[in-house]
Computed example of a mutant assay.
Amino acid sequence: MSIKTEIIGKIGALMTVAFGLVAALAWNSSIQALFREVFGTAENLPAMFGYAIIVTIIAVIATIWIGRLSELAKREEETGKSA
């Protein structure tokens, strides 16, 4: 692998992570706004912890779900099946 190919690959990976971070920040702002609509101000400590717990639970569930989908797709690819 040439240095040029390696550099392009690394830049692509960094850009992907950067876009992921921007998307995460946008979702964070949206979820915080939703939380304020439902539960009122999120300035007090219990509300902040509630928000953190809810977001963590959603993140864990989403991560497990995406991991299972990824594993299923890999198995289907290995066996030659189409989705």
Rank of each mutant, 00 (worst) to 15 (best):
M1N: 05
S2Q: 06
I3Q: 09
K4H: 11
K4S: 11
K4A: 13
T5L: 14
T5F: 07
T5N: 14
I7C: 01
I7R: 03
I8T: 14
I8Q: 14
G9L: 01
G9T: 04
G9S: 04
K10I: 13
K10M: 08
G12T: 10
A13P: 01
A13V: 03
A13N: 09
L14P: 05
L14E: 14
L14K: 12
L14V: 11
M15W: 15
M15I: 13
A18G: 04
A18I: 04
A18F: 10
F19H: 05
L21D: 04
L21E: 06
A23W: 00
A23F: 00
A23P: 00
L25W: 05
L25N: 05
A26H: 15
A26C: 15
N28L: 13
S29H: 11
S29V: 08
S29R: 14
S30R: 09
S30T: 07
I31L: 13
F35D: 01
R36Q: 12
R36F: 07
R36Y: 06
R36S: 09
E37R: 05
E37Y: 07
E37Q: 08
V38M: 10
V38L: 13
F39Y: 13
F39R: 05
F39Q: 02
T41F: 10
A42V: 06
N44P: 04
N44W: 12
L45S: 12
A47C: 08
A47N: 11
M48H: 09
M48W: 07
F49M: 15
F49V: 15
F49K: 13
F49D: 13
G50L: 02
Y51G: 01
Y51P: 00
A52H: 07
I53C: 06
I53P: 02
V55K: 05
V55Q: 05
V55R: 06
T56C: 11
T56V: 12
I57S: 08
A59S: 11
V60I: 14
V60P: 02
I61A: 15
I61D: 11
A62D: 04
A62S: 10
T63G: 00
T63C: 01
T63S: 03
T63Y: 03
I64P: 12
I64D: 14
W65M: 06
I66F: 08
I66S: 04
G67F: 08
G67D: 10
G67Y: 08
R68H: 10
R68F: 12
L69C: 03
L69R: 08
L72Y: 04
L72M: 09
A73M: 08
A73N: 07
K74Y: 00
K74Q: 01
R75V: 05
E76F: 01
E76L: 01
E77L: 10
E77D: 10
E77C: 06
E77R: 11
T79Q: 06
T79H: 07
T79M: 08
G80E: 01
K81W: 13
S82Q: 06
A83N: 08
A83E: 08
A83V: 09
